[in-house]
Write a protein that binds this DNA or RNA. Structure first.
Length: 424
RNA sequence: GGAGGUAUACCCAAGUCUGGCUGAAGGGGUCGGUCUUGAAAACCGAAAGGGGUGUCAAAGCCCGCGGGGGUUCGAAUCCCUCUACCUCCUCCA
């Protein structure tokens, strides 16, 4: 959510900045009208309330003097009715205004490349050598199925499409990966470990920006009005919702492991096979709360933390800076890290690292105070996958495959796999 | 699931029965000082919540006593409702 005062005073400029976002901006047009109405009503209603307070205070005194207070009370009753009516109007306007504010996307940072869609994203850097295979590479779903470590068919039977069973060494590999990632970020990058709830309420999902606009992407538990989390970003960012942190608390860095649940509405037909696009997957997520002046430095660091995992796994990747049209609704700036997937002969997203500036903080009301007496200010929030585990499995299976269909276990994972060197 | 209880500011805590000088006491803590080699203690003093409106800035005004409604001229106080927490019982991984 943007700052209303800032929006009011810079409407033209902000509209211009949002134009390249490829988001629906129709709500922006309603802002000025609603904003003016709101403030007009507030002035009117407060004037009346002030009068009511003043007179109400006098009534007991008049009574004491033995005066007839009935006429005054009658008058105030009318004032009260008036207030109730105006308040009702105000409530309706504020509700509409709130919806408008929640539907306006974040402003892109000046360093974000202007562009329409993913074609215009800019490659920032590349790491690792793409390995040459002297045999025909197999897709990870064949490798996994043949080795008996992934079972898509039975998952389809038990649940439906876009689900999977990890089995045997596949399950072990998944577990090794999240243990390795959690350990590494906690021990070397200074993050505090967290295991969050997988189910959150509407307020939390609004706080991080998935609601109200993207309701169809989430799994909803109607009876409770709860949602399955699409990412640990939601519970972990909202962990400090409605709080005022002290300056010493910042930066606050958490690394969280969780399951993630996405309906993948609108992705029918895309990546229908394999682990790339599932309704449920596991992810290690990095979340930071920082002072505003530190957030862009923090974005670089956080992206580096995610990259480090790929480097240790020796998986080739590139870092893309998302252009204005591909930024998503909530980010001011976003890097996608894309890992090399041999069977597809291309790079695929494995991590997304974003700086939201105060966009989420304002929605979720996450603030901090400088010193003991500072005015509360909004923190800046950031997050990034460190990494998506399912897609890491894809990359490992495909990049580490051998001609006989066996998989070499990346060295850093071997301690987590009981010393195993090859899955065969 | 059954019975009862609690929710006031950074923390503790009065006020709620009996609505109105409560402009939300009083502590603790915080900050400054006295004393001390330094600290603690004691004493003296100070500042102190959040949001909105307004304005160049301010003053002022409005709203805040878990959230949301309502009654009333007037609500921390009365009514309804929701939520969280606590105690006991029941059930349960």
């Amino acid at each position: 959510m943007l700052d209303m005062k800032y929006l009011r005073n810079n409407l033209q400029e902000i509209t211009k900045k949002l134009e390249h976002r490829g988001e629906d901006l129709s709500d922006l047009d309603r802002f000025s009208d609603l904003d003016e109405k709101r403030r007009g009503l507030i002035v009117e209603t407060e004037k009346l309330k002030s009068k009511r307070n003043e007179v109400s205070k006098k009534i007991p005194l008049l009574k004491k003097e033995g005066k007839d207070v009935q006429p005054v009370i009658a008058e105030m009753r009318e004032v009260g009715d008036n207030i109730a009516e105006l308040d009702q109007q105000l409530r309706e306007i504020e509700e509409q205004l709130q919806q408008v504010m929640l539907s306006i996307p974040n402003i892109p940072h000046e360093s974000v490349p202007v562009g329409e869609d993913e074609e215009d994203n800019v490659e920032v850097r590349k790491w690792g050598e793409i390995s040459e295979f002297d045999f025909e590479v197999k897709p990870h779903w064949d490798l996994g199925t043949d080795l008996g470590i992934l079972d898509f068919e039975r998952a389809a039977k038990v649940t439906g499409s876009r689900f999977v069973f990890y089995k045997g060494l596949g399950a072990r590999l998944e577990r090794a990966l999240w243990n390795f990632m959690m350990d590494y970020h906690a021990e070397h990058h200074g993050y505090e470990e967290m295991l969050p709830p997988y189910i959150v309420n509407r307020t939390s999902l609004t706080g991080t920006g998935q609601l109200p606009k993207f309701a169809e992407d989430a799994f909803h538990i109607e009876e409770w009005d709860y949602y399955l989390i699409p990412t640990a970003e939601v519970p972990v960012t909202n962990y400090h919702g409605q709080e005022i942190l002290s300056e010493e608390d910042l930066p606050q860095k958490y690394v969280a492991y969780s399951g993630c649940f996405r309906s993948e509405a609108g992705s029918a037909g895309r990546d229908t096979r394999g682990l790339i696009r599932q309704h449920q997957f596991n992810k290690v997520e990095l979340v930071q709360f920082v002072k505003p002046e530190d957030s862009y430095e923090a974005l670089e660091q956080l992206t580096g933390h995610a990259e480090k995992i790929l480097q240790l796994l020796k998986l080739p990747y590139r870092v893309m800076s998302m252009c204005t049209g591909d930024l998503g609704f909530t980010a001011s700036k976003k890097y996608d890290i894309e890992v090399w997937v041999p069977n597809q002969n291309t790079y695929r997203e494995i991590s997304s690292c974003s700086n939201f500036e105060d966009f989420q903080a304002r929605r979720a009301s996450i603030r901090f105070r400088r010193g003991a007496k500072g005015k509360p200010e909004f923190v800046h929030t950031l997050n990034g996958s460190g990494l998506a585990i399912g897609r890491t499995i894809v990359a490992i299976l495909e990049n580490y495959q051998q001609e006989d269909g066996s998989i070499v276990v990346p060295e850093v994972l071997r301690p987590y796999m009981g010393g195993l060197k090859v899955i065969k």
